[in-house]
Amino acid sequence: MGMVDYLQVNNLQKLYYVNNSKIKAVDDVTFNVKAGEVFGLLGPNGAGKTSIIKCICGLLDYDGGDIIVNGYSMKNKRRKGLRHISAVLEGNRNIYWRMTVKENLEFFSGINGISSSKVKERINYLINQFQLQQQKDTVVNKLSRGMKQKVAIAISLIANKDIILLDEPTLGLDVSMSHEMRSILRGIAKDENKTILLSTHDMNVVEATCDRLIIINKGKIIAKDTVDNLKSLFNKEIYKVTLMEGPKNQLKERLKKVAQLLNYQKQAENTSLLLQLDNGNQLIEIFQLFKEEGISLIAIEKVTKNLEGIFIDLLKEEQHEILL
C-alpha cells in the first residue's frame, strides 16, 4: 500500500498587485507530500518558495487552486488544517527573543492548547534531542544564530504536529552548523516520523535530506522528481580530458562532430576539455582523433554533476526557452 498524501498542493496560484500590474508569484504549482517524507522546494531567491510555504500554513490567501492538509482545505477549513502543521519561517523569527529556551517551549505548547503538565516530558525530550541542556535557561537573544535556529525547530516540534514546514532552515548558518542542521532534519523525519517540507536555495541541503523535490523558478515548477532520479537524468556522459598541448582548430572542429565541447581551458602546462557524449563508446572515436593528430593525453575522468549543476542547467534551459 502506498503512503498517504498528507499534503496536496493543487494548481496553486498566488498573484500580487504591484503598481497596478499583476505579478504571478506562484503559477499553477502542483505537488503532493507523503507521510514521513522529506520534500524539498528548491529555487533561486524570489522564485516563489516562501509564498508557497505561507499559503500552506494559512498566512497568505491564495487566488487559485487549493491546498489540502490531511484532508482539510486551507481555504475553507484553515483551523482544522492548522492542527497538523507547524512552521519555522525564514530567520527563526518564531521565537520570543526576550524569553528563555524553556519559557518559549512552554509558551508555544500553551498557545496550542496543551497543558503544561502534559508537555513537561516532551520539553525535556526536545531539550535533550537538540542538545540544548546548557542553554535551556538562557534568554534566546543571547544565543548564536545556529542555536536560535535549533530552538526554532524544537518549538515547531513541541505541539507534535504531523507536518513541519521549514523555510530556509540553514540560511546564514556556518558550515558546521549547517551540517548539524541537516542531520537534525534527517533525525526529525526518521525518529519523530514527521513529514517535512523545506524550502531552500542550498542544493547541498536538498541533496543530503530530501527524498523528492520540485525546482521552481519565477513561480513555476521546472522539475519535479526524486533527488536520485533528477541526478541520473541530468548526469549525461560528461568527461574532463586533460591534454599535453591544446588541440589545433582542425581537431576542435572534428571533436565537435563527435561530442559536445562544453568547455575549453588552455593553461601554461596543459589544456583541459569538457566533453559531453551521447554514450561512453564515443570515447573510442575521440581517442582515435587524438592519436591521428599526435596529441598526448594526460588524464581523463568522468564528471558527475551534483544537484547544483543540475539546478543551474535547468535555469539555463528555461532562460533559453524564454529567449526562443
Binding site: 500554513c57 494559512g58 498566512l59 483551523r79 482544522k80 492548522l82 492542527r83 502543521i85 507547524s86 512552521a87 519561517l89 530567520g91 523569527r93 518564531n94 521565537i95 520570543y96 527573543w97 508555544f108 498557545i111 496550542n112 492548547g113
Partner: peptide
Amino acid sequence: RKGTLEQLYMTEIPFTWL
C-alpha cells in the same frame, strides 16, 4: 515587527481568543 505574530496565527486556537 518581531515575526511572532505569524506564529500566533498558526495555532488552531483563534487569534481573536489570544
